[in-house]
Structure formats: C-alpha cells, structure tokens
Simulated assay, not measured.
Amino acid sequence: MWKLGRLWTLFRKELLLAWAVLRDPRAPRAAKLATLAAVLYVVSPIDLVSDFIPVLGWLDDGIIAYLLLQVAFKFLPPELMAALRSKVESRARPVAR
C-alpha cells in the first residue's frame, strides 16, 4: 500500500510542476504548449483507447499525458527546471507541527 502512496506523491509533484510551467513567464512557449496538450488529451472525449474499456482507457490517458509532460519538461532550460522543481518541492512538503 505504501507504493500507491508514493506513486500519488510523485503524481502530485508532476501536476504541481506542470502548473508551475504554465504560470512561469520564463518558460518557453513549446513547454507550455506540450503541457497544455497533455491537459487537453486527458479531458478530451477523443482517445486512442476508449474510456469505456475499464482499465486500458484510463491507462492510455495517463501514459500519454505523462509522456507529453516529459516532453514539456525537456523544453525547459536546466536552470529553470531546477528552480521550478525546488519551488514545487517546498510547496509539496508537509509542514511539521
């Protein structure tokens, strides 16, 4: 069960990083377009594999969105990627009380 929690944490960080790419004015247009394409593919009713097929339909959405996000992250300059990752890490880290 801890693997599922770890997977959720990684997924959440990737989503926060994608949101940061869309909001940062220093991000190249190609990175923003690839991120937007990932979001549009997930919400689009047009899929490679229909969502009516229980697991495969959702799995293809996740895999294609993940691959598009990785393409978007490749377009980012290394220093911007590092800055955005550190920003996301600080935001995603739970506050100790």
Rank of each mutant, 00 (worst) to 15 (best):
E79D: 15
A37R: 12
D24L: 06
L4E: 14
L16M: 15
P54S: 09
W58Q: 12
P28R: 07
R93I: 04
R12D: 09
P94C: 00
E14I: 08
V55G: 09
L59N: 03
A96W: 13
W2E: 11
R91H: 02
L22N: 04
L36V: 04
A83D: 13
P54W: 02
A30P: 07
S50E: 00
R6K: 14
G5N: 14
V55E: 08
A72L: 01
L69H: 08
A30E: 15
F75Y: 12
S50R: 07
T9R: 15
V39F: 15
S44Q: 04
L84D: 06
P77M: 05
A27C: 11
L17T: 03
Y41N: 04
K3Q: 12
W2F: 11
D60V: 10
P78M: 01
S50W: 01
L15G: 13
K3C: 05
R93Y: 09
P28K: 02
P77S: 08
L59T: 08
L67M: 07
W19Q: 14
S90K: 15
L17R: 05
A34Y: 13
P94L: 02
F73P: 02
M81E: 09
L80D: 03
G5S: 13
L17H: 00
P45Y: 04
L80K: 05
V49L: 14
F75I: 08
W19F: 13
L16I: 03
T9V: 14
V43L: 12
K87Q: 14
V42E: 12
S86E: 15
R93K: 12
L67W: 04
L76Y: 00
S44C: 04
V71S: 04
E89P: 05
L33C: 13
P45I: 06
L40Q: 11
P28N: 07
G57V: 03
F11K: 13
Y66K: 08
R93N: 09
G5C: 11
I46C: 07
K74P: 01
G62K: 02
L17A: 04
K3H: 09
Y41P: 00
S44T: 05
P94F: 07
K13A: 09
V55P: 02
V88Y: 04
S50V: 00
V43M: 08
A83F: 07
I46M: 09
S86R: 15
L10V: 14
L4P: 11
V21D: 03
